[in-house]
């Protein structure tokens, strides 16, 4: 276990921007005084003329990005999820979503793994907020490989996209030759027949760990990685739910409005199935290390294992 490669998806984000800059000459990157933290600093260093620091003014930054898109640029707006999706929500809705502009939002420091900064900066609501905007693509990659693939996919796609990245280093789990990324497509990372665990972001790794523990108890869990929360891969979820008859969702986000809600929206209409939603249970986070927080709030493999056992 100790030799598993770990990298924070925010690092992947910055690296991907730099790697894709030549291929996408209209790409520009905006920050609000957080380039060092959002990891777009590597892009800024390589392409200073294409990096725009807007200062600590996220609402204006989103509007400037809208204008840049109208002038033919492909802007990536970077900030913490709390400020990109939270503070600037209405700008994202009215200046980007409503006119359907080709603006990409790279939101880092999402969820409780922000850690020591505490609840003011731990955004557990961004997926819910972004899902409500018509036409918005919402992605939450699980590791370095998926994060880079999501950035490329966002650049190839024409229209508004929101991508959620984390602060803490997480294991690389998609490092296999068959891996391919497509907006709106989930992947079955482990096949099973007794229960479906649908996870997103850093919780995919927890779900895989939980499935291994469940296997030791004779429970055969299917694990689905949903990177694109909107549009949701309903076909994949419905097929799995039909097979297992029980669904658990896992996300580093409020159980209100995120992946769990998206899965329930689908299942309740098309295939009513019992669902257990694992996530932040309508509470704020707190200061602590990322690892300690994930453990306390039951989002690590042990926590997911425990919740699934109780559910079954």
């Amino acid at each position: 276990m100790a030799d598993v490669k770990k990298i924070a998806t925010r690092e992947s984000y910055g690296n991907a921007l730099k790697e894709l800059a030549e291929e996408f000459p209209q790409l520009v990157v905006l920050d609000a005084d957080l380039a060092a933290a959002t990891k777009t600093g590597v892009f800024k260093k390589a392409y200073p003329e294409r990096h725009i620091d807007c200062g600590i003014a996220e609402c204006n930054m989103v509007g400037v990005a809208a204008g840049l898109a109208l002038a033919g640029k492909v802007p990536f707006v970077s900030s913490f999820a709390m400020f990109a999706a939270g503070r600037a929500f209405e700008q994202v809705r009215n200046s980007v979503g409503y006119p359907g502009l080709n603006v990409k939002i790279g939101a880092t420091h999402a969820g409780i793994t922000v850690g020591e900064d505490g609840a003011t900066h731990q955004c557990n609501e961004d997926l819910a907020l972004m899902r409500t905007i018509p036409g918005m693509v919402v992605m939450c990659p699980s590791d370095d490989i998926e994060a880079k693939a999501a950035v490329r996919a966002a650049l190839e796609y024409v229209g508004p996209c929101y991508i959620r990245f984390g602060r803490a280093a997480v294991p690389v789990i998609n490092d296999n030759p068959d891996y391919k990324f497509e907006i709106g497509k989930g992947t079955v990372v482990r096949e099973g027949k007794d229960v479906t665990i649908v996870a997103t972001g850093i919780c995919v790794d927890s779900a895989i760990g939980a499935a291994e523990k469940l296997a030791a108890d004779g429970i055969d869990a299917e694990v689905i990685n949903i990177c694109t929360i909107k549009p949701l891969d309903e076909e994949l979820i419905l097929a799995s739910a039909k097979k297992t008859g029980k669904v658990v969702t896992v996300e580093e986000h409020s159980v209100i409005g995120g992946l769990g809600s998206a899965v329930c929206d689908c299942l309740s209409e098309k295939l009513p199935t019992p669902v257990k939603k694992i996530g932040m249970q309508d509470i704020f986070g707190e200061s602590g290390s990322a690892g300690a927080l994930v453990e306390k709030y039951g989002l690590d493999a042990a926590g997911v294992y425990k919740s699934v056992k109780e559910f079954l």
Partner: peptide, 25 residues
């Protein structure tokens, strides 16, 4: 119409972004 608007304060930011884009190019 070059930009959706109506939520006050937002139009000027979009105009600024357009001006920046044209200036950059």
């Amino acid at each position: 119409v070059d930009m959706a608007s109506g939520s006050l304060g937002q139009g000027i930011s979009a105009a600024v972004g357009m001006a920046l884009g044209f200036q950059m190019d």
